[in-house]
Design a protein around this nucleic acid. Structure first.
Lengths: 143, 143
DNA sequence: ACACAAGCTGAAGCTACTATAGAGTCAAGG
DNA sequence: CCTTGACTCTATAGTAGCTTCAGCTTGTGT
């Protein structure tokens, strides 16, 4: 299988595949005489796993950890569960943040119903007056 | 007011202030003889507005749009409301995505309760087997 | 023989900053 | 007057996870 076919099978672009290789997530495949990459079923399976992890918003670091753990098939999978639980915690944190954000946005939005001059717009006034809440730093890689 | 004081007043770093200037969000201030930036109250107000917008996860593009609109104080503020509504829609979209994500993650998590060999781990099996759902592209700048 | 698709490498671009190097400015203390 | 230390200056590189581009080579169909 050449890179284009692999990419189609895994629903991603050729560039992304090459990027994963450079990032160390996907093993370097064999090459043809003409220097084209040749992939096997095991590459596709691995790539699918990576794409699924990404679809679940895991970071490359988290995926890397999972892949390392998956290499020792006889070990206890407790560590796998731990990586997973941590990621769920990330998602939870971000969900709470966004929920809080939406409350703030909605309350700001109610301060203006359009038709005012910009000068008198409750939203802009609110944005200028709001007291900045210091965020306690990044606790998740989710934006 | 020099840059350090401005930054303290707006709860951000000196580097961020210089970055906003280069990004065109904050007007270039006057300089002292020794080439230090000197800011007035209007710069602080503008910077506070920018920081509040960022605290609400608006992109620089959105903030830029708001600032442009705010420059014509006599115009109708309908356009301001539109920018704001669009941002609320971004947050909503991302909330729905993350909620969906959490459902998937939870269901995957239930497939393994640790103590298995990695080979038999339901999570890894699920990650490898999951059918990739193609995302309909980025509809928000929120990660 | 020639066109065109698909592959190759390496580098730059994206967002919103953060961090570093190496210099200059300025007020206070000795 | 001189030094120390806090602050400031510019310019550059790094972060994540790709995407896009330039310029080239390889393979395929007619």
């Amino acid at each position: 299988m050449k890179i284009g076919e692999l990419a189609r099978n895994a629903q991603c672009t050729v560039e992304t595949v090459r990027y994963y290789e450079k990032a160390g997530l996907l093993a370097e495949p064999a090459r043809t005489e003409g220097n084209f990459r040749v992939y096997g079923a095991e590459h596709l399976e691995r790539l699918r796993l990576i794409r699924n992890c990404r679809a679940l918003d895991m970071s490359h670091e988290e995926i890397h950890a999972l892949l390392r753990l998956a290499q020792a098939p006889d070990d206890d999978c407790g560590a796998v569960n731990a990586v997973f639980d941590q990621h769920i915690a990330h998602v939870d944190t971000r969900l709470r943040e966004l929920t809080q954000l939406k409350i703030q946005l909605s309350s700001l939005r109610q301060r203006c119903n359009s038709g005012n001059a910009v000068d008198a717009c409750g939203i802009l006034q609110g944005l200028a007056a709001m007291e900045i809440e210091q965020q306690p730093g990044r606790h998740t890689h989710l934006g």
